[in-house]
């Protein structure tokens, strides 16, 4: 994939994180009738159940943005074909694992898996 495409996704996911992150924090703070109830078990379960898809999208955007950003930082600090390939693959694998583990959490909350 061309670098311009990668960076376009990087910028879009960045904008997406700002919007969805705000929704995420708003839900965590105000869901269930206010700040006092926000961290009650029933409120948290409701929030995750009702907005599971939103959390999954936030997870996908965050995973790409964070791991690609980390790749850019590491390849800027040190250069070399082998090193850059190793960094790219290592972070792709780490990002994939993070996304899968996060998805599992969302699916548990949604009751899809036990």
């Amino acid at each position: 994939m061309k670098e311009s495409k990668v960076m376009l996704i990087q910028y879009l996911t960045g904008a997406f994180i700002i919007v969805l992150g705000a929704v995420h924090f708003a839900l965590l703070t105000f869901a269930g009738g206010g700040y006092d109830n926000a961290l009650k078990f029933s409120t948290v379960v409701f929030t995750y159940t009702a907005y599971g898809l939103a959390f999954e999208l936030l997870l996908a955007a965050l995973t790409f943005h964070v791991f690609n950003g980390f790749r850019k930082v590491l390849t800027e600090l040190h250069q070399g074909r082998t090193y850059e390939r190793a960094v790219t693959w290592a972070l792709a694998l780490a990002g994939g694992a993070t996304f899968l583990w996060g998805t599992r959490t969302v699916l548990v909350f949604l009751g899809v898996i036990g």
Partner: peptide
């Protein structure tokens, strides 16, 4: 320019 060490850095 559109390479890993091009304008995007």
């Amino acid at each position: 320019l559109d390479s890993p060490h091009g304008i995007w850095n």
